[in-house]
Each structure stands twice: as structure tokens, then as C-alpha cells.
Design a protein around this nucleic acid. Structure first.
Lengths: 176, 176
DNA sequence: TAGTTCTTTCAGACCGTTTTGAACGGACGA
DNA sequence: TCGTCCGTTCAAAACGGTCTGAAAGAACTA
């Protein structure tokens, strides 16, 4: 029988569990994620690894955060996909270990490229389609001439903002 | 007894309700809001007013979107606070009318100023506090020397990113 | 002051998402 | 081939936040 659960590791190493700052950090990142529309657990995992000097296994992460292995598994894979953490293989150990990726800025870049950038492109197409649709609605008699003109102006204004943002994209990328 | 509910307005005006493009726009903005963590109804109201040539009353908005007056009231006030829409008083009419604010870009600016910018400032203070807390945890024996050093480096990296973003703030503001 | 009209507030219903325990599947060693 | 060890997937529960109907509030008229 196994002597202890994996999370109760060698206590000769000082236990970061007792660091209050670390707890703060974990819950802060957790809340940040929640506000951004991601699962809180994703942020917690990142926060835990941020304050961990060595790679942690799935079981260790789940035990220290007191969340299920299921959440840990999906959350960790999410973070790996974003380039926020790395999966480490330790020879002779069948477990997956996770470690913070070296550069937190690269994660920001990845998130930007995955979420914001594609949406900006889609938005441009979408706006163009809408302008066409608007014309059809006018000829179809679903809009008066006056309404069409106002909507057209507003859509064009939006399109201008969109192209401005899109042209700013390379600047932002370089910034990070 | 009232003859008709206020939303059933003079049908001599061509009815934008039948514009398919408009429906698309409303649901798109609604979904966008939902993804950003705001109520869908807020986006729907904005979308409706975006395609409306004249100011609409609370009742009209609620009726056209088929949502409750309660949601409409809170949502509209939210949008007014962001500068996205304006409240119009029509002499001799006690109802509140709402109209799209002239400049959608100014709403972006307002949202940026209200949400992103203050958070950046708070984040800076927070990181500084954490650095202090980390030192305390070290002297308190809750962290080993090695762990402290690693965490310190990472926190400093974050702080660098934070200050970079904060210094970029004026650039973004000028962009919009 | 009573009555009307319109907006806001609030407790509870409701909905979508995250989280969980349990079952599954794959890889390894004996 | 069996038993063990891990990671993933799945249905269902739990949670958090929005939406609603009803009641209260505010502003005005007669």
C-alpha cells in the first residue's frame, strides 16, 4: 500500500504552502482568470506553479490546490496550449510534471494572437457583410432611406475603428 | 384602458424590426458582451440603438428586444455610464429616451479608462506588496533561500511587464 | 391629496459554466 | 496476461450571475 498521498512530500524541503504571499498570488490569479471568462482553476494552477521552484505533478497540483484531478488535467492542458506552462518528462517517472514557462510575456503574446487578433480579422469581414446586408434591406423595403443612411454612417464609423485597431496590431505585438 | 402597448408604434414608418442585418448585429453585440463578462442584454440594447434612427423609450426597447423592463433599465443605465448611449429628454414627455452616443470610439476609451487602466495601477502596487511579503516569508522561514530567489526573479519579471504595459497606456489612449 | 405614468429596486427563478467523482483507456512491469 | 499507475472523459451536481415579475419610488397633474 502507498504510504502517503503524493502531495505530502518530503518535509525537509521548506514548505511553500505556508507562504502567505503565495496564497495571495494564487487566489489573485484565480480571480483574474474568472473575470476574463476562464475557469478559476486555470489561474490557480498557474499561480501555484509561479511560486514553485521545481516541477509539480498533476497529483501534487490537485492536492495542494484541493481541487479535483479532472479540473487539474483540463486546466493544465489549457495552460500548456497557451504556452503559459511546460510539460516536463522526468526519466523513469511516468507522471506528467509541469513547470512555469520561462517567459510570462510570451503567454500574453500567445493569448493575444489566439483571442484578440483573429477576432479583429473576423470583425472586419463581418462589418463588410453587414454593409451589404444593409443595402439589401434597403432595396427590400425593410429600411427607409433615412434609416439606411444613418446605419450606414454608423457602420462605417465602426469599420474605421476596426481598421485602426487592426493596423495597431503589429505595434502591440512588438511592444510585448 | 391603454389602446396598445407602446412598442407597437406607427407603422407608417418602415419597420427596422424586419431588417435581418439588424437582427444579426443585435445578437452579435449581445454575444460579444457576454464573452467580455457583461450581461448580454447590455449588448442587445446597444445593438438595437445602433440601428435605430430615432431615440427609443425604455418600453420600446424592452418590447422590441422582448426582455423585461428591469433588465432594460439597468442595462441602459450601464451604457449611459460608459458613454455608449445618451439619455434624451423630449419636452412634454416624461419617458426616458435613449440614443446612441455620437462617437463609438469614445465608449472604447471610457471602457479602457474604467476597467483596464485602474487595474494596471493596482497591479503595480500589488506586485510591490508581494515582493515585500515574499521577503517576510523568507525571514519567517516559510520559504527556502532557493525558492525565494526564484519567486523574486519571476515577480520582477511580472513587474517589468506591468510597467511596460503601463507606459504604453498613453500610446493606446492616443490611438483611440 | 389622490391618481396616473414611468423608472428603479429586489427576492427568487433560471440558465450556462465550472467542478467533481467515477468510469474508462492506455502504458508499463512482473 | 494480469495488476498497477496515470491521465482523460463523461454525466451530474454545484455555483455564480443574469433575468424576471411584482412592488416600491419618484415626478407630475388635476
Amino acid at each position: 500500500m502507498p504510504a502517503v498521498i503524493p502531495s505530502q512530500r518530503d518535509s525537509s524541503v521548506s514548505n511553500p504552502l505556508r507562504s502567505r504571499t503565495r496564497q495571495d498570488f494564487i487566489s489573485t490569479v484565480g480571480n483574474l482568470c474568472r473575470r476574463l471568462g476562464f475557469p478559476r482553476s486555470v489561474g490557480q494552477i498557474y499561480g501555484l506553479l509561479f511560486f514553485s521552484a521545481r516541477p509539480l505533478s498533476l497529483d501534487e497540483i490537485a492536492a495542494q490546490l484541493e481541487i479535483s484531478k479532472a479540473s487539474t488535467s483540463t486546466g493544465a492542458r489549457q495552460l500548456v496550449a497557451w504556452g503559459a506552462i511546460r510539460q516536463i518528462w522526468i526519466p523513469g517517472d511516468r507522471r506528467d510534471y509541469f513547470q512555469l514557462a520561462s517567459d510570462p510575456a510570451s503567454m500574453l503574446l500567445e493569448l493575444y494572437r489566439e483571442f484578440l487578433k483573429p477576432r479583429l480579422g473576423v470583425a472586419g469581414k463581418r462589418l463588410a457583410e453587414m454593409m451589404d446586408g444593409l443595402r439589401e434591406d434597403l432595396t427590400g423595403g425593410f429600411l427607409s432611406e433615412e434609416e439606411f443612411e444613418i446605419c450606414r454612417k454608423r457602420l462605417e464609423h465602426l469599420a474605421k475603428i476596426q481598421s485602426k485597431l487592426q493596423s495597431a496590431a503589429p505595434i502591440i505585438e512588438r511592444l510585448i
